[in-house]
Each structure stands twice: as structure tokens, then as C-alpha cells.
Design a protein around this nucleic acid. Sequence first.
DNA 1: TTGCGCTGGTTAACGCTGTTAAGTTAAACA
DNA 2: TGTTTAACTTAACAGCGTTAACCAGCGCAA
Lengths: 207, 207
Amino acid sequence: MTKAGSDGTLRRRILDATRHLLVAEGYTSLSMRKIARAIGCSPTAIYLYFQNKDALVHTLIDEGFGLLYEELREEAARHDDPVARLEALWRRYVAFGLRNPEYYEIMFMLHPERMERYPPEKYRRARRGLELSIQTLEEGRRMGLFAIEDPRVTASAAWAALHGAVALLLARRLDVRIDPEAFIDTTIRTLLRGVLAPEALPQMAAK
Amino acid sequence: MTKAGSDGTLRRRILDATRHLLVAEGYTSLSMRKIARAIGCSPTAIYLYFQNKDALVHTLIDEGFGLLYEELREEAARHDDPVARLEALWRRYVAFGLRNPEYYEIMFMLHPERMERYPPEKYRRARRGLELSIQTLEEGRRMGLFAIEDPRVTASAAWAALHGAVALLLARRLDVRIDPEAFIDTTIRTLLRGVLAPEALPQMAAK
DNA sequence: TTGCGCTGGTTAACGCTGTTAAGTTAAACA
DNA sequence: TGTTTAACTTAACAGCGTTAACCAGCGCAA
């Protein structure tokens, strides 16, 4: 008999069940016992495929980074103009976060002490998304479109800003009087104005 | 015999011990039993003064918001020029977060589902800090210094951006090749350029 | 055909968690 | 002196991540 009772390897079923539980009940209520119950195996069976709970979640984090990178890469390929590409990347990042709150939470919102266990080597993979922004900023700067110093620093600052916006929205801590769409728009337009060269600025304001 | 064995009410000693444990070991490892052990009482004694663990933490969150607001209010009073005041408020916010990571974590980084239990009425108090930014933006806009639409939305967007920066730094997820100071500086200068009116812009770049 | 070893699980247990119910001690007061 | 009450403790429940020990069934060599 092959691995796992019903369909697919038990490993795959564990990952699927974990993702579903994450969507349904959030990270804090995720437990090994619940996962096991959901797929009808004993809690300890999970340890045959994952070293511990962290390793299991890290595997899902990897999946999440893969999805995000694919979206960003596809978006980047669609725009030649660095300014348009940068804005598109930023909007896509926010959209991804809001569309995949469960992935986003484990990818970016886990507490520091937990995240330290995430292998640094995997961070490099996670940073590929940022590279797209860095390259775009670099390219635009050479064309005189952006007034920035270090593209890497600017890209990180912008990414952090977007993360703040997504985190605020996901936590539902935005003032109820504020329209989320207007909030996202203001965030992105402010950042864009912040990096655009003065001579490239009026063109954007006209939009 | 009065409340609490040694000095101060037991309630006060619980709060102090919790804050110290938070500093020393972080939120995730905080437990009622540890708090009790630290002050030499039984775990259940805490429930005489706080409804549950959440209520205990919420009390500390309140303390944190009080501290933050005091710092921001003092900072705001020091600057007449709206542009200088805005920048000072933003820098002070980041500095507070980095100087009080344990407060910051429970104030702004707890998971959504936990934060929902935080009474909405207390959020209003927490928002007082944001009001300082809103007023400054409003005032500066009347003087033609800021090119913004809704001060409330812009203030929220900027705050979210700063939160993203602080969260990134506290989680130590910033690329090691990037100097934290440069990162903060870029974040704040980008935001400032993003809200400044074009005619007020060169004045800043000269700084 | 018998018996060994491996694969893929299981059950039982440890020490931890937040929280509740019931019990206890000592002071305050009629 | 007897009773009430405030302040706290002990014992327990259910759930948590994780480990150690065990066991069923299969492939395969003797």
C-alpha cells in the first residue's frame, strides 16, 4: 500500500488541510491536533513529514512566496515604462495581501521570535520580489525618472510602507470613516510622488 | 492585612511584572503562570484583578498609548512650522517604536483576531496620536505647503507606512546590507516628498 | 515457508498553557 | 462570640507541541 490512506500523499494532505484551517480559523488557532483531526490521522503522524509545527508553516510560507513572486513577475513583464511598472508592482503587492490574508499573515505578520527560525537562506528566495522593484527603480533612475539615492533602500522603504498598509487593512484597524480604496490609492500615490523626479511629477498628477 | 504581601497593590505588581517579562522574553512566551511565579502568587490571583490574559495585556496597551501620545504631544508643541512639525512627529513615532519594542508589539503587532477583542472605545483614545498628524496636515494645507486631498486619509497612509518600517526593523527582516538609519531616513523623506506641494519641495531637498 | 527488517503509522505520556470551581485563611464588624 | 467578607490558594479541566515506545503489514533473503 502506498503512503496515505485516501488520495494523494499524506504530506500533501497535511499541507492542504493546514492551508484550509488557516483560511477558516487563522493562525493563532491552528494546532497540530486540529490538522490531524481534519485529515483523520494521529497528531504524531505529521511529525513523520515535518520536523515540527514551524517547519510545516515554513513550507506554506514558501508556497506563498512562490505565488507572490509569480504574480509580481507577470505584472512586471506587462509594463515597459518604469513608472507604470513600479506602480503596477506596488498595486499588485497590496492586492495579493488582501486577496490571500492567510498566506500574508504567515509570510509577513508572524512575530519576530518565531520568524527568526525561518532559515535565512529562504529569505533570499523571498527577496526576489523586492528585486523586481529595485531593478525598476534602477532603470527609471538611469532615465532620469526617479529622484532617489539608493534603489535598494528606496525599494525596501516602499515595500515596508505597503506592508504597513496591508497589515492595517487586514487587522481592520483603519478608521471606519476612511474608504479602503482611497487609503490604498493615497498610499501608492504618495509613495510615487515621493520617488518621482520633479520634472516627471506633473505627468503623474495629470493622470 | 492589606492587599498584596510586600509593597504596592498586587494589581500594580502584576502589571510591572508583566511589563518586565514582556521586555525580557517577548509576548509569545508570556504566560499567566510565569507572571504569578515572578511575583510569588498563585496564577489564579491575577484573575482577581483582570478578567483574563487579554484584559491584562490591554491595560498595558493603554499605558503604551498614553506614553506614545505624551511624546507626540510634546514633540508637536516644539515646532511651529507644519512641515517641520510633521517630520518631527513621524521621526518621534519611529523612535518610540524602536525604543519600546515590547510596548510596540502589544500595541500594534498583535494578531488581528486578538486585537478585535480590544474595545473600540479604547481605539478612539489610541487615535489621538494620529489627530496630531491630521491637524498638522490640515494646517499646512491651508498654507499651501501640502498637496494632499484628505488629511485624514493621508495621515493614516503615512502612519501605516511608518508602522511598516518599524515592524520591519523590529522583526529584523531588513536586508543586512541596508543601514537602519538610512532606511528610516529614506522612508520619512519619501513620505515628506510625497505630501509636499511642488513649490515647497526644493526647500526640503536643500536641507 | 519462515523470519528479519523496514515503512508508515499508532497510543500513551510529559510538561506546558488559560481558565474555572471550590476551598481556606484572616481580618472586620455586629 | 459569631458571621460576613475580602484576598487568596489548591485542584482540576481541556487543550497545546512534542517525544518515546510500540505495532501492523509488506518486501525479501535464506
